[in-house]
């Protein structure tokens, strides 16, 4: 007898992905090439096997992504035979629709929202599946699994629908859209443990490697990529580092690490006394940085 035992978080995520596929007409999976979206892809494979994943992937490319991530993104979509839609923040900048930030902390994180909302409108997506987790950030901790957004992408955080048991209400009006978060209840450690258990391939920048870096505000920044602003007096040195998140390079700092394998990464996270987004300068701009971005349509 071979008995299937329950893995609560995995079952919950698969359940949510199936609800999205069944309740919406045009869902899309937001795929960044980061570990959370890679985990989502594995869960989606499991949810619909032997059928293909029944929705395309969308990547909002800031133009500031790690080259390793982009390469990885293209390869995975090709392997799975999934349509990959890429929309570039650069196009909106070139068209004069948005203005690039300047200065030391310039990042394209805010500009992503505009491109995302344009893509939603262009394709008529009614649901966007994202790999956001509630343990990441205090505003995320407040969000529902099905998070209804207005046709301007706005999150009405003080007026969310009740969400009881496993019951997900995806009913919306034309123009509205729902952000769906299958791994809401996973922690960073849960994701890494799952990647280890499932032996999922991830981009190389998640592992410790030698990199030319410089220090600023007690954080380690890549000196190998020109999109990261570096002042003349900020000295370049070589260190063993890895990245805990792979967002926009210009706002994602590295951490010192010698974790060269997944099991070592898992151990490192277990022992860490800094949260995952502690290395994200975009969240440090103000107490409410994430909430404000969300209200405007960000993930």
């Amino acid at each position: 007898m071979n008995e299937l035992r329950v893995n609560t978080l995995e079952s919950e995520a698969i359940y949510i992905l199936r609800e999205v596929a069944a309740q919406f007409e045009k869902p899309v999976l937001l795929f960044s090439g980061g570990k959370d979206s890679i985990t989502l892809v594995r869960l989606a494979q499991k949810a619909f096997w032997p059928a293909k994943i029944p929705f395309p992937f969308l990547h909002v490319d800031t133009g500031h992504n790690f080259p390793e991530t982009i390469e990885f993104r293209d390869r995975l979509a090709k392997e799975l035979g999934i349509d990959l839609i890429v929309r570039n923040v650069q196009d909106n900048i070139d068209a004069g629709k948005v203005v690039e930030e300047t200065g030391k902390y310039a990042s394209r994180n805010m500009l992503q929202t505009e491109t995302l909302l344009d893509a939603i409108e262009e394709f008529g997506f009614d649901a966007c599946i994202g790999g956001a987790r509630r343990d990441e950030e205090k505003a995320r901790a407040k969000e529902r699994i099905f998070s209804v957004r207005s046709d301007f992408g706005e999150w009405d955080e003080k007026n969310q629908r009740p969400e009881l048991f496993d019951l997900l209400n995806g009913k919306i009006e034309l123009g509205q859209n729902v952000r769906c978060f299958p791994i809401s209840n996973w922690t960073e450690l849960d994701v890494w443990s799952y990647i280890e258990r499932e032996n999922i391939e991830i981009p190389s920048i998640y592992f410790a490697h030698k990199r030319k870096v410089f220090l600023r505000d007690g954080m380690i920044w890549s000196a190998e990529d020109d999109v990261v602003y570096r002042a003349e007096d900020e000295e370049v040195q070589e260190m063993m580092v890895r990245f805990r998140t792979v967002g926009d390079m210009s706002c994602t700092a590295a951490v010192l690490s010698d974790a060269v394998s997944i099991s070592k990464v898992v151990q490192e996270i277990r022992d860490s006394s800094i949260s995952e987004r502690g290395a994200r300068i975009d969240d440090k701009r103000s107490e409410a940085a994430m909430e404000k971005r969300k209200q405007q349509g960000y993930f």
Binding site: M1, N2, S11
Partner: peptide, 12 residues
């Protein structure tokens, strides 16, 4: 892609 003879409650 795996077959099981029994599934426990809570499984998808």
């Amino acid at each position: 892609d795996k077959k099981y003879s029994v599934a426990e409650r809570g499984t998808s």
